[in-house]
Design a binder for these strands. Structure first.
Lengths: 374, 374
DNA sequence: ACAAATACTAAACTTAGTTTGTAATAATAT
DNA sequence: ATATTATTACAAACTAAGTTTAGTATTTGT
């Protein structure tokens, strides 16, 4: 490199300023100091440093009122890159994001990712191809966020996925992937990465503390506290499926259950992904399913309210937007009754993010962790 | 004061060191640096400063091995004091703690605290008496932690208590109490203060992130994350009662429900306080109540597990210890079944704290907030 | 007695901020 | 047009809080 060597250590105040720039998607340099507890001069110097490191870039001065115009500050999208992987029962997707968190490349595995080594070989080959086709990125990749479905267990780096992914259990997956890929790997539950995507690009821009409910083949969730994803003791925080007993599980709002209900009505939806694209709220069975699952949905919400009392609850995962709104309407009709005081409710939000938020969040986590507010 | 004026602002590193000394209940000065990311020299200087401020005191040098003996460092118990109040439906208790968090004075109100102004007048008179009888403390009281039962609502400083305490709603209680008492007042839910007591003196010495279940007349709880009490958006975090519907509420593990069940068996227990002192696990009806309430208890635990995945869950409040153990045994017999993976369980702990942990925690919070690790 | 280990003390240095002061720029009032 | 004024940029001295370096003191083990 003939450029300035990129330090990957960023001080707390530098991170704070990077996060302010990120959240506002670029702003006048002079508008930053007011959002910090630093003086204008300190902010000036910090930004100067971050520009020298090529983390930030200065644009045209903006004339907004009196006084000397202040240059526009924005993230340098090329400063760093990060890779996200999301592994589901029947699918795996991989993406590359830039320093702004924008997805540049995305690809799905062409076979079911049930065999661990076969899947890893495909992943390795894909990333090598990406690096060859984009030679500038290789040295600037900060790490890999690897999201998968399943519960973390006591052994560090191990996960217990659902049955079809049995081959992925019993190994220190984090260590294995780091050895394979040569980058730092963060292993995360894929409901939490959905929440991370939301924290970076969605509800997180408005709310500091929120719960994320991930409607997929199963029903899970993630937690964001003060803008940071919360993992809990073993990384299973937000795995709200735990509140249902074995008998109750079939009635929880998992999309697999809706697909079954639709099948009983003669409507064949082959996968959760297809459900998202083809969903029609007037299909027979949909209204009934919503009605029937609402008490269990409410219970999940009340678990979030009772335990963390969030600012907001975001409905995400792979749920069709119109279905999410049906669930919220049904909740209203139920009167949102709980046994106790019901006066303070979190904001209920349907996720606005495009694409696979689990893969996105997985890719964002290495970036967040290294460069943005902690 | 002819002593050095006591600054109430403590830097982050000073707070860290105060917290290390507090947790270890005193230790050799040389044993501190290893628990920080600071050098021995920096720790030395910081402790020097804290000793000059009379927050810490040096004791006899301790000879443990080779090398120059290192003086014993401990909190100066007289450095500061704090007041805690816990208001329940039928009782109010007030306590004074010293800088070590030890309760020095404690008193219960001799009448039901239903009338707000009458109760406040009694409290004001009590604190004035305490200050007169202990003239040295007045100038060193950092604040008042005011814990009460009820839900916080959107209006700042307001709370919605259960019906008998109706008179306490509809006002900015925090502002009112600050005006009355002349000290900073922190208004907290009394299940959270129980968790704070546990964080300071109990499970918090071992576990960083835990859930606290408070068995009282009702059934509530509090959350501690990374050693800090977590309040949530409105201060209602941990209010686990929300997970039960109106129909389910009578079966939740609230001690009032046990008292009712005992009454049906002809055993008259006049109050929750009496239950704690008189409880006999062989009373008829107890085993049945435990059996019947266990699924609801399990659901509360699974809500905590699902949402925050804690290191530990502490059973506290006013539950008799033997009853808490019966609940845990019953949980074991149920197989702790949930619909999903059940391999990672938090440590289940019965609180070992003596006295009223809600009042204790209320008193501790102003101290914690000002002087100990954040 | 003496070397090794450990802790204390002190001074110089470093980092990352604040404070203070000045210059530049552009909107606004006259 | 010109002076005024608010806002921002830039620069140097200062400050707070740590680290680094180096020497000193005290005890243990041989």
């Amino acid at each position: 490199m003939n450029e300035i060597e990129k330090e990957q250590t960023v001080s707390a105040n530098e991170r704070m300023i990077l996060d302010i720039v990120r959240r506002s998607k670029g702003l006048a340099r002079s508008a930053i100091a007011g959002q910090t507890n630093l003086t204008q001069q300190s902010v000036h110097r910090i930004i100067d440093h971050l520009v020298k490191l090529e983390f930030l870039q200065l644009g045209e001065p903006i004339i907004q009122g009196r006084g000397q115009p202040s240059p526009h500050v924005s993230l340098n999208p090329e400063a760093f890159f990060s890779i996200g992987v999301s592994l589901n029962t029947d699918d795996m997707s991989v993406s590359l994001v830039n320093f702004c968190g924008e997805t540049l490349l995305e690809e799905n595995i062409p076979f079911a990712p049930v065999k661990r080594l076969e899947t890893q070989a495909w992943l390795k080959a894909l990333l090598e191809r990406w690096c060859q086709q984009n030679p500038s990125i290789e040295s600037r990749i900060v790490g890999v966020g690897f999201a998968m479905t399943g519960y973390f267990i006591k052994e560090k780096g191990h996960i217990r996925p659902p049955d079809p992914l049995f081959d992925w259990s019993g190994v220190d997956l984090q260590a294995e992937l780091e050895a394979l890929l040569g980058w730092p790997v963060i292993l995360i539950n894929n409901a939490t990465t959905g929440a991370i995507g939301e924290a970076f690009h969605g509800a997180g821009l408005t709310y500091q503390t929120f719960g994320y409910l991930s409607f997929n083949f199963g029903f899970g969730g993630g937690i964001v506290i003060d803008g940071e994803p919360f993992f809990g003791a073993y990384g299973n925080a937000g795995e709200i499926g735990r509140i249902f007993t074995t008998e109750e599980a079939p009635q929880r709002p998992a999309l697999s259950m809706l697909i079954k209900a639709l099948a009983r009505q003669g409507i064949d939806v082959p996968s959760v992904a297809k459900l998202k694209t083809q969903f029609d709220p007037t299909w027979p069975g949909v209204a009934e399913w919503v009605e029937q699952t609402t008490p269990y949905f409410l219970r999940a919400i009340n678990a979030l309210r009772g335990v963390i009392d969030p600012d907001a609850i975001v409905l995400g995962g792979e749920i069709p937007k119109s279905l999410a709104h049906m669930l919220l309407d049904s909740l209203e009709r139920c009167g949102m009754t709980s046994s106790q005081d019901i006066s303070v409710w979190p904001q209920m939000i349907v996720s606005e993010l495009k694409g696979d938020s689990a893969t996105l969040g997985a890719a964002l986590q290495p970036l967040r962790q290294t460069f943005f507010r902690k």
